[in-house]
Design a protein around this nucleic acid. Structure first.
Length: 268
DNA sequence: ACATATTCCTGGGGGC
DNA sequence: TGCCCCCAGGAATATG
């Protein structure tokens, strides 16, 4: 499940293969992603040069000039890979050939991903603050928590209209690091909580990027390599296992329809 | 206006 | 072994 650290890792691994390269051919095999790939996607992308690769929220953004960005969202099962897919590999929806013999392919069994050409950020939906950017702070969390007093703090962290890139894995991990129970209502957060939580979100995301992401199920970077952060998880998918801090069994609960994991002793 | 439920999709796991 | 059922998940949309 690609979240911010995984998408950042895909951007970093794909960039050296594609920057400065021209798109020679685009093949769309399956348009039906979460939103259909537009009919003119291939013709608009072909012939353009990739100038830069960046991440915004959970999107990989390839700058193809004239203010146009090739935007790729991996959904939950998407992979954006360098090279040729094995001949019979199913669910390969888009193939791209660049000059210099570089090939890319997009594979997404569950088709929750997106592929589009974006002229402005508005095309990407309503995107909140980057948690590793300058606008993210304890003050921001405090003001969000005052504006959304009734929702749980975990739901707040995972609302991409407010804060981007934090999905289920890293919301659970950050709350454990901050010692805050996921189901706590935002109204009950103190300023001190928001200071610890802002630090925890940044800390967990930075550590995960340093480990090249978490490989649960089938996440891989653009070169096909797995991440390592799953070995450092403290709570996610560890229900029943001993808390790494205090050995109390980790509990599981459903919040906002998502599996939620916490230590009942470390997190209040 | 705000909060929660539903929807999309498929691989994989559990139960029998 | 095989089949059925159900679940996971991001984000848009629908419903309360």
């Amino acid at each position: 499940m690609p979240e911010l650290p995984e998408v950042e890792t895909v951007c970093r691994t794909i960039a050296p293969h594609v920057i400065g390269r021209r798109v020679l051919a685009v093949t769309v095999r399956e348009r039906r992603l979460r939103k259909p790939i537009s009919a003119d996607f291939a013709s608009r992308l072909t012939g353009r040069t990739i100038h830069a690769v960046a991440r915004r929220a959970k999107y990989v953004l390839l700058d193809v000039g004239d203010g146009l960005r090739w935007a790729v969202h991996l959904g939950m099962s998407g992979r954006f890979c360098v090279g040729d897919p094995p001949p019979d590999l199913p669910h390969v929806h888009v193939l791209v050939e660049l000059d210099g013999g570089v090939r890319l392919y997009f594979r997404d069994p569950r088709r929750f991903g997106l592929m589009l050409l974006s002229e402005s950020e508005a095309d990407l939906g309503e995107l909140g603050v980057e948690p590793l950017g300058e606008d993210f702070s304890a003050e921001l969390l405090w003001s969000l928590s005052r504006r959304h007093r009734r929702v749980s703090v975990k739901t707040l962290l995972m609302d991409g209209r407010l804060i981007v890139g934090v999905g289920n894995i890293y919301a659970n991990e950050a709350l454990h690091h901050a010692g805050i129970r996921p189901g706590r209502r935002c109204a009950k957060l103190t300023r001190a909580d928001t200071v610890r939580l802002a630090d925890a979100v940044r800390f967990v995301l930075e550590r995960a990027i340093a480990s090249r992401g978490s490989s649960l199920l089938d996440y891989r970077d653009a070169d096909g390599n797995a991440g390592e952060f799953q070995r450092m998880l403290h709570v996610y998918e560890r229900d029943g296992a001993a808390c790494r801090t205090c050995a109390t069994p980790i509990r599981r609960q459903v919040i906002g329809g998502r599996g939620t994991f916490y230590c009942p002793r470390c997190q209040r």
